[in-house]
Amino acid sequence: MTVPLRPPREPLDPRVRSWWRVHCLAWPVLLAVVLGVLGLLIRPIAWFLPVAGAVVVVGLLLAVAFPAYWYRVHRWEVTDDAVYTRSGFLWQEWRAAPLSRIQTVDTTRGPLQQAFGLSALVVTTASSRGAVTVVGLDHERAAEIAERLTRATQAVPGDAT
């Protein structure tokens, strides 16, 4: 049974699909290289070679099928009084962080994200388990939202607990 919550308004940056694809491929390829080298060097385990091929194929399938799907499921929005996200395809999660309860707003960028011009927006509340993360925003957009949120939260008095 689906959860009757409305999806957040905004999709992620389309480039996030390429980033996910690279992720889907990077680990299988790395694994395949290790298996392949071992298979070539050590005779008795030459059957590692077809296994390596299979791993690459699985990675390719994942990279083709999933990012488009994830892209449809992962959504976010900043309303007048909250940051609202939905994430996860199998293990789904809906989160909202009211602006009045936000403590910090950060953007983080890994090397791969930088290559794609992406940023992740991390919004923390006073709860140790309440952080809201939006992965895969255009990095200028993310910085602009972070600044807007920071200004909005500074306007609220108290320590947001």
């Binding site: 049974m1 689906t2 959860v3 919550l5 909250a82 199998l90 293990w91 789904q92 999660e93 809906w94 989160r95 909202a96 962080a97 009211p98 309860r101 509340t125 006073a126 709860s127 140790s128 388990r129 309440g130 947001a160 607990t161």
Partner: peptide, 27 residues
């Protein structure tokens, strides 16, 4: 502070969901 809703594939099939209340205190 706020809420979080999570649903695993098994929960989805059974029509269930887990509702979390987050707080600055305790866990």
């Amino acid at each position: 502070l706020t809420w979080t809703l999570t649903q695993t594939p098994f929960q989805r099939r059974a029509g269930l969901v887990t509702l979390w209340f987050t707080t600055a205190a305790g866990d």
